[in-house]
Design a protein around this nucleic acid. Structure first.
Lengths: 265, 265
DNA sequence: CCGCGTATGTTCGGGAACGAACAGAAAACA
DNA sequence: TGTTTTCTGTTCGTTCCCGAACATACGCGG
């Protein structure tokens, strides 16, 4: 079976590792992000939460539960009721549409966004699968608490809505991309996007997993990746992928990379 | 050139034709739709507007300008500022993503929705092209007036948000569909969806136009359509398309048809 | 250090769609 | 009426990707 099987529920972070590891990162902060509020003695590293004014944030804080998400964990399954929303702080999550046993990625969420927009838009059941793709920390919140806060806090509402629209635009671009672009270009785009999310040029991903998110055969990934490697754009070894030549990889990727990145604004 | 060239601005309806033609239709009304308010002496036939309570609606009415949209007219071009939102009452509009000279449809809007969600979500410039695909009547509203009303009217806000999420889900499903399904199945789905929008089994569309919305060559459409015709599922003649066997066509279409229809709820 | 699971590489035949080009036929127009 | 435009049908060689199957290589646990 290609995609990792669903697992029980996310475990509580066993040591909030990663939280302070990020704080030194050069994340371009949002306007309201200069507060240094203490959640485990670290600043707010999720862009959406960073939009919440200090006063509101303090009320909201006890509702935010730090969790450690691990590779392969499914946060939502299609048709399931959405009980929690997640704000990644140091991990990223794939949004997958399932069709006839196959899967394909239609969105990617990192610390710039949230998982569970459906709730914010008045929809209680997720039509998609949300799969943790890069292990790490996130903040989890109960659905009803989130909705309450959303109703109360206009800045958060604004940010969430803009983010939701970015997701829409991203999904639309992906629809076009899936139709027009070759596997190799799509692979390159996807590696770049993942690199952006993990803020590193190295990460761990098997061809099998890549085949799933791209909606192609594993062999298709092997060929495309092999070609990229021959051209010294990437290197990999048993799942350890490294971006060697970012510029070259961007040239190999389709224009959708730049378009989607700009959409996220 | 495949897609019809952009045109100036929509003209004002020269005789509000179509408005009363619809009123007898058996549209499944929304819960709040039993009011019989008079806009050109006819009830509200747009589902989103139907969510507006009577009191708010009366204030909103003068802002709604009836316009006649004609086939091929572009309501938005990519990158353009969104000045108006449109509520189709008796027409439908394609949302297209442009990529390298080619186009592909990523959404379809009829009387169940609106064109210009971007504005409602806090985004001022449309990343997509909105092309009138079935001529007919719509209600147009200035962007700022719409935003004002949105802020004031919670029921409208709710409906618009749910609709926006439906659009997101639709775009995602389309992304998967574009990747996995054959031209013939996608064509069948698309004909069914259009039939739903125009509430008829007959409409006018050339192969050339179909090729554009499906993102394939015209020849691809000719072949697929020829096959569907041979199987007596559809009939056509120089752009006049008729669905002959709806059940059969649904069988020929991919499951995305049912999925997307249910999402629209 | 052996074996087995996981990850990657390679091959083969086949099908769907592509780009390009041309032909016929119906409608629109002059 | 004849001419032009629009719409549809058909062909050809090519490319990309598919499904299936098999071969190798690494690394962990016994």
């Amino acid at each position: 079976m290609p995609v990792v099987a669903p697992q029980p529920l996310p475990k509580i972070a066993s040591g909030i590792a990663g939280f302070d590891a990020i704080s030194k990162g050069g994340l371009p902060r949002r306007r309201t992000a200069k507060r240094a509020l203490s959640l485990a003695a670290s600043p707010v590293v999720n862009s959406l939460l960073a939009a919440v004014p200090r006063r509101d944030y303090e009320r909201l804080l006890p509702e935010l539960e730090p969790v450690a998400l691990t590779y392969g964990e499914a946060l939502y399954e299609p048709g399931q009721r959405v009980r929690h929303v997640y704000f990644p702080t140091d991990c990223h999550v794939s949004i997958l549409v399932m069709a006839e046993g196959k899967a394909i990625e239609v969105g990617l969420v990192g610390r710039e966004g949230m998982v569970g927009i459906a709730l914010a838009m008045g929809v209680e059941h997720s039509p998609v699968r949300a799969l943790v793709q890069g292990s790490g920390a996130a903040l989890r919140m109960r659905g009803d608490a989130f909705l309450e806060e959303l109703a109360r806090c206009t800045p958060l509402q604004r940010e969430v809505q803009r983010y939701a629209y970015a997701k829409l635009a991203q999904a639309r671009q992906t629809a076009a991309c899936n139709r027009f672009h070759l596997v190799e270009a799509r692979l390159a785009r996807w590696l770049l996007m993942t690199g952006d999310r993990v803020r590193s040029d190295q990460f761990h991903l098997t061809h099998e997993f890549l085949a799933d998110v791209l909606g192609v055969r594993r062999v298709g990934v092997t060929n495309a990746a092999g070609d990229l490697q021959r051209r010294k754009l990437i290197g990999y070894h048993r799942g350890d992928i490294a971006i060697l030549d970012r510029g070259g990889l961007e040239a190999a990727a389709c224009s959708c990379y730049g378009i989607v990145r700009n959409l996220a604004s």
